[in-house]
Amino acid sequence: MKAKHQRLTLALAALAAIVGAGVLAVSALGEQAAYFYSPADVAREGVPVGRAIRLGGMVEKGSIRRSDDGVTILFTVEDGPARTPVEFRGVTPDLFKEASGVVAEGRFRADGTFIADNLLAKHDERYMPPQLEGGKHKTETLEP
């Protein structure tokens, strides 16, 4: 019985240590593991012109415009008060809509506009039938 208890304590301690180490390692990773920058990050830290990053946020309501050439799309990505203008040439994903999440891959131009090579739509954790949309849908940020 004694040996059994010893093994139990040992195994529990080992398990706690392993999970603790995993959580620590992962939290040390922190921002490194973030999949995208938000406009707020960009405003706070600044991103060098020309560096390839992902920019994620909500597409601002009423901001989507098509430029005169017909293929370039201009819109604003917002995250709370921070906003970044984005320019994209190409076909947008089906889920690319105003007031919903987007992740743009590309780089900043010197004038502060983000030039996207690729757009990914981001869905949020709420699922509902179309007739319920509207009142209930009010995501303002992509922060977890």
Binding site: A34, F36, S38, G56, E125, P144
Partner: peptide
């Protein structure tokens, strides 16, 4: 929850 991901949060 910890990181920004493309995958949506827990539903």
């Amino acid at each position: 929850v910890w990181w920004r991901t493309l995958h949506q949060g827990p539903s």
